[in-house]
Design a binder for these strands. Structure first.
Length: 856
RNA sequence: GCCCGAGUGGCGGAACAGGUAGACGCAACGGACUUAAAAUCCGUUGAGGUUUUGACCUCGUGCCAGUUCGAUUCUGGCCUCGGGCACCA
């Protein structure tokens, strides 16, 4: 063949890998044949694979691509392994970005959201994601948020939803309140601007009532959830054990008791002063008619001017002042001066503390500044120390503690609590840092809270039959700090369902995290009209077997969804306590060491990659880039590498197809009498050295890929194993001439290679599969199995060490008896050289691994 | 400050029960093909040294110790980075 002809052939379209063409083609075919769905039938075991659903912001970003590719591969492999797989998709469609964009652009949030959902869906299909597209859910549709509202009413009935006045987080940029979970180190989770405090009446879900169960049920998640995520949640819930101790105010006329919370009741004898939070309601009472009033008010004013962030920072100087009053230490009857100070917060514990400067760093610092006495009551060695240079916060032996002297502080803690309880002076208490979940939002684009306020009847829940409370379309939703719905006459004005009089609707909408706290249940019966979900479907599919999504939701969505599930369990609506059995947090994709962000202009969109190289390259690269749970940096040359591999795969398979066409198995079969099967050939020793190596590699690869994907979520190593197989197949093709090639081996290895790759790169494998003459989709072929006998090496490289250092190695039969291994090692010239004339002290033989000769 | 997690070539990473450190890929270099380039294929690639050119030796997984015949892996201490909590009593 001359050069021109060869060139011509290379340029023929069916010869070279054209990602765009084949991907568009197969997307069309799959749409028609329903290959996207992984549901099969209920005779098979079920498996529910779920990725956190997206907020429809337009086209998916790289984080989405990573999240969904991981989920897609897992879901596809499980389906091929014979599971009935639920792998749904939907859109978390309420939320601020659409509303903010609307304020700028004038496009209604509903319209932009729906347009974005269409973009998103198109992109997901373009990337080859195997979702139940017919069962999508969209949280901003009335047939979904009707049930979000239904759940609100359920919580209300159960006494778990309440409106209360509280000091709440206020984001001035978003013009709404925020839940505690949505404030990240003093800043708004969404817009990053500083969060201030306001006292407002707001709706809360009482998640605090579930604090202990959220902790206890973590034992159901151990093994399925990464420990670090559970640790984050534990920290967030912030359980601490201690005691409430009642201090009586020294007062002739009134009997005022101020309780405090402490985790160190064993230090009660060390109390030398007492602090109440400056905004504590008792402060005014205490200083009334007192000479100290003016000074206390002055200091209080200074403290209240400090922002919450300032005040809760350890950097800020501690300030406070004496109130002129005293409390009585219930244990020893001592008179203790009462102070106010900026480091005592009203929100935590009881808003007042007993101060023990000898054993608390903060109290120590304060005492030093204001010359308050320090009394040591816990000593590391049981002796009293002249002057403490700093607070001793560890355990020790109790001193200066009356009848408790000489007792270990851990023991003393229990004894003092018992004493307090017996004498009605206090009690054992558990405190949590977790706060109730604030779900009201003063914004338009959310599910309206289904509550009516009536002058006669008070707060009245909207009757179930009147749901959904529809979100009106025509509303002026410019943020004013008031809910936009309050300006909508048609929305606000209603009739009280109880007395029929004119009444007004609640105008706040719900936090979108409420919508996402139950969506995984809706997926089980997305079109059900009688209830949020059909019980039998939820019983069948739930809980989610594998959940995948970003760890940034550890203290938000993931804790809310767990809470919701427990409430539904208590209501008898579900029979499981935890929604997600296993959770895998994928890492983020950075660019240039920084988070991709529009403002920084360092963004690579999935569409750029699939438009240039194809979706298969995108998927392959995003899995190969590094361990799925680690933060990775985007690399353009890495993408090139992935693309190159697909080209290499393409050429290999196309060449093998050609070869197989020329050398049909039927032809070969005529020449032998035995049934031809590669495994038989292998077992019968009919394969040549390289053939045997290739066949073994094939089985080893099946084993490794299966385990890496399903047991370890280790996609990068699974792919590298497949690359090794491809390299070996190339080597075989290059080394062995066509007339000597094993037809069966080529056929089997090519087919299985494609099947192994098909969940990762669904398009190219489908195309090559069809080119092999297959009628059915590769995505319906069952997952290959491996044979341990074949996968097992017959030779292993045994390491010969002298004094732990590698000196020689030799390929020896697997499972060689230790004595023989030892003999082999001692026969090695190199080993003998290193031993020389020295005495052998010890010989260590590890079967199938090594021999180590220890010499003096 | 407290609690987690991680530190391995020029780079991303592998080594999944304490046993060959650097799989696979990127980048770089050399070669083949080509008039040339691209693409492709093959090879080399941790550092240092010895060298009869076949190979051989020493060091090397953040740092310092320890346990062990043997440590990237286990233990203790330290350093750096990332994350969580944080005047939380």
């Amino acid at each position: 063949m001359d050069r021109m002809e060869r060139k011509k052939e290379e340029f023929q379209s069916d010869e070279s890998y054209n990602a765009k063409e084949i991907e568009e083609k197969w997307a069309r075919v799959w749409e028609k044949t329903g290959v996207y769905s992984l549901k099969s039938d209920r005779s098979k075991p079920k498996y529910y694979v779920l990725e956190m659903f997206p907020y429809p912001s337009g086209e998916p970003h790289m984080g989405h691509a990573r999240n969904y590719t991981i989920g897609d591969v897992v879901a596809r492999v499980l389906a091929r392994k014979g599971y009935n797989v639920l792998h749904p998709i939907g859109y978390d469609a309420f939320g601020l970005p659409a509303e903010n964009a609307a304020i700028k652009s004038g496009i209604h949030p509903k319209d932009s959201t729906m347009a974005n959902i269409n973009k998103m869906r198109k992109a997901l299909k373009r990337m080859g994601m195997s979702y139940e597209f017919a069962d999508e859910i969209i949280t901003c549709e009335p047939d979904y948020y009707k049930w979000t509202q239904w759940f609100f009413l359920l919580f209300y009935k159960m006494g778990l939803a309440e409106k209360k006045r509280a000091k709440v987080n206020w984001c001035n940029s978003c013009q709404t309140v925020l839940a505690n979970e949505q404030v990240i180190s003093g800043r708004c989770e969404r817009c990053d601007s500083e969060v201030t405090k306001k006292v407002l009446a707001q709706w809360f879900f009482k998640i605090t009532e579930y604090a202990q169960r959220l902790l206890d049920d973590m034992k159901l998640l151990e093994g399925g959830w990464p420990e670090r995520v559970l640790t984050i949640q534990r920290n967030w819930i912030g359980r601490s054990e201690g005691a409430i101790v009642n201090f009586r105010l020294l007062d002739d006329s009134k009997d005022i008791v101020i309780p405090i919370f402490t985790t160190r009741p064993d230090t009660l004898y060390g109390v030398t002063f007492f602090i109440i939070a400056p905004e504590h309601p008792l402060v005014d009472e205490i200083v009334k008619d007192s000479d100290y009033r003016k000074e206390v008010e002055r200091v209080k004013e200074i403290i209240l001017k400090q922002s919450d962030i300032e005040r809760s920072s350890t950097e800020v100087e501690k300030i406070g002042c004496f109130t002129g009053r005293y409390v009585i230490n219930p244990l020893n009857g001592e008179k203790v001066p009462v102070w106010i100070a900026n480091y005592v917060l009203l929100e935590y514990g009881t808003g007042a503390i007993m101060a023990v400067p000898a054993h608390d760093e903060r109290d120590f610092e304060f005492a030093q500044k204001y010359n308050i006495p320090v009394r040591e009551v816990i000593s590391p060695d049981g002796k009293e120390h002249e002057k403490l240079a700093k607070a001793y916060v560890d355990e020790g032996i109790m001193i200066n503690s009356g009848i408790f002297n000489g007792i270990n502080s851990v023991e003393g803690r229990k004894k003092i609590v018992s004493y307090l309880e017996e004498n009605n002076l206090g009690k054992f208490t558990i405190n949590y840092k977790l706060k109730d979940w604030l779900i009201s939002r003063q914004r338009y684009w959310g599910a309206p809270i289904p509550i009516i306020y009536c002058d006669n009847c008070g707060t009245v829940p909207v009757p179930e039959k009147d749901l959904p409370v529809l979100l009106p379309y025509n509303v002026d939703f410019r943020p004013t700090g008031m809910s936009p719905l309050s300006y909508s006459e048609e929305f606000v004005n209603t009739i009280c369902p109880e007395c029929g009089q004119k009444a007004k609707r609640e105008t706040d909408t719900m936090d979108t995290f409420v919508c996402s706290s139950w969506y995984f249940l809706r997926y089980c019966s997305p079109h059900y009209e009688k209830a949020p979900f059909e019980r039998s479907e939820v019983d069948y599919w739930m809980p989610v077997d594998q959940y995948i999504g970003g760890i940034e939701h550890a203290t938000m969505h993931l804790i809310y969804a767990r809470f919701f599930t427990k409430v539904l369990y208590d209501a008898g609506l579900v029979n499981f306590k935890e929604p997600f059995i296993k959770y895998f947090p994928h890492g983020v994709v950075n660019l240039g060491g920084q988070k991709m962000s529009k403002s920084k202009g360092n963004i690579v969109n999935p569409s750029q990659i699939y438009n240039k190289y194809g979706a298969d390259t995108l998927r392959l690269y995003i899995l190969f880039i590094g361990p799925a749970d680690s933060i990775v940096d985007w690399s353009d040359s890495g993408v090139e590498g992935a693309y190159r591999f697909l080209g290499r795969l393409w050429r290999l398979v196309v060449a093998n197809i050609k070869f197989l066409q020329k050398n049909s198995i039927e032809e070969k079969c005529k020449s032998t009498s035995v049934v031809l099967d590669c495994k038989n050939q292998f077992m019968n020793g009919e394969l040549g050295k390289l053939e045997k190596e290739l066949y073994r590699k094939l089985h080893q690869t099946i084993k490794k890929v299966t385990q890496d994907v399903l047991d370890r979520f280790s996609f990068n190593t699974a792919i590298s194993a497949i690359m090794e197989l491809v390299n070996l197949m190339y080597k075989y093709n290059d080394t062995v001439s066509d007339d000597k090639k094993n037809v069966l081996l080529i056929k089997e290895s090519t087919e299985k290679l494609l099947v192994l790759l098909s969940p990762i790169v669904p398009f190219i494998t489908e195309e090559l599969w069809s080119r092999m003459g297959k009628q059915d989709s590769i995505h319906r072929v069952s997952w290959p199995t491996y044979d341990e006998e074949v996968a097992k090496e017959e030779l292993v490289t045994i390491i010969f060490q002298v004094n732990g250092k590698l000196r020689d190695k030799k390929d020896l039969p697997v499972d060689m008896p230790p004595e023989e291994m030892e003999k082999e090692a001692l026969n090695s010239e190199k080993v003998r050289k290193f031993i020389g004339s020295r005495e052998i002290v010890k010989k260590i033989v590890v079967p199938n691994k090594l021999v180590n000769i220890v010499i003096k």
